[in-house]
């Protein structure tokens, strides 16, 4: 095994008025290093000006997503060893504006997330009930979607989001489903309003790359298709039974 590997890291420093470019760093190759370890090595020992986001190092926080050799991955989960002999190209997540180096601007995602009200909505609360119990089956309905860590890899992988930035996108729709399918929640129709317009779920053409890159196996593509079936049923119901209650 070679003892060194080259990383080609995307650099963009708007305060320098410099054009985006790639900078090469030769680093020692350690068997147990992930890309994030390599970036931390660069930051600590070679070039302290490199900017990137990271926090937990264990696939929980969702902040270290980047493009590695043109694929969106969590850099804390991508081993250098699998990328021998290199060079390894590291870029900020695709489809997002770049703030600096490997740091992307995630405001668009956060704005869209807020729009689908990703929290439990109750029509009315009964203070006498202290807890709402769920059966394992009721939990299983939404648990998969609740595993999303908002890492936005699916947004980088989604060709539709790349072409049409107004598209609500995979993770947000999967998170809307997480609450829609929770039997304690009553917010289905409020979320349907946010997701049935021009920029909502109907934009998805079921390419499925979001589910392929998801590090938590959330399957946003599946969530969107299930939501479309629900949306289509609701549409036909409203057309054929306009007097029935919207549910």
């Amino acid at each position: 095994m070679a003892d060194k590997i080259t990383l080609e890291v995307f650099r963009y420093r708007p305060d320098d008025n410099s054009e985006p470019s790639f900078q090469k760093y030769m680093i020692p190759l350690q068997r147990d290093w992930v890309i994030l370890d390599a970036l931390n090595y660069i930051k600590d020992h070679i070039d302290g000006t490199l900017s990137y986001r990271w926090s937990c190092r264990m696939g929980i926080c969702g902040s270290c997503g980047m493009m590695v050799n043109e694929k969106p991955v969590l850099t804390c989960a991508a081993f250098l060893e699998n990328l021998i002999p290199g060079p390894v190209r590291i870029e900020p997540l695709e489809n997002f504006p770049v703030v600096r180096d490997l740091v992307i601007d995630m405001r668009d995602f956060l704005e869209k997330l807020k729009r689908v009200k990703p929290w439990i909505i109750r029509e009315q609360e009964d203070p006498a009930i202290e807890e709402y119990k769920q059966t394992p089956d009721q939990l299983a309905d939404f648990k998969q979607y609740s595993m999303c860590i908002n890492c936005m890899l699916c947004y980088s992988a989604c060709p539709v989001y790349g072409l049409e930035p107004e598209f609500t996108g995979p993770a947000v729709i999967a998170l809307a489903q997480r609450y829609n399918m929770d039997n304690r929640d009553h917010g289905n129709s409020a979320r349907m309003d946010a997701l049935s317009d021009e920029s909502g779920m109907w934009q998805c053409t079921f390419i499925g790359d979001c589910s392929k890159v998801c590090p938590k196996k959330v399957d946003p593509a599946g969530a969107i298709q299930r939501y479309k079936v629900h949306g289509a049923n609701t549409w036909w119901k409203n057309l054929l039974l306009p007097w029935a209650k919207d549910k």
Binding site: M192, S196, W202, K228, G231, A232, T234, W235, W236, D246
Partner: peptide, 14 residues
């Protein structure tokens, strides 16, 4: 729910 024709076409597509 807003009236929108997309679910109609999608139903036929599906």
């Amino acid at each position: 729910m807003k009236s929108h024709v997309e679910p109609f076409w999608w139903s036929l597509f599906g």
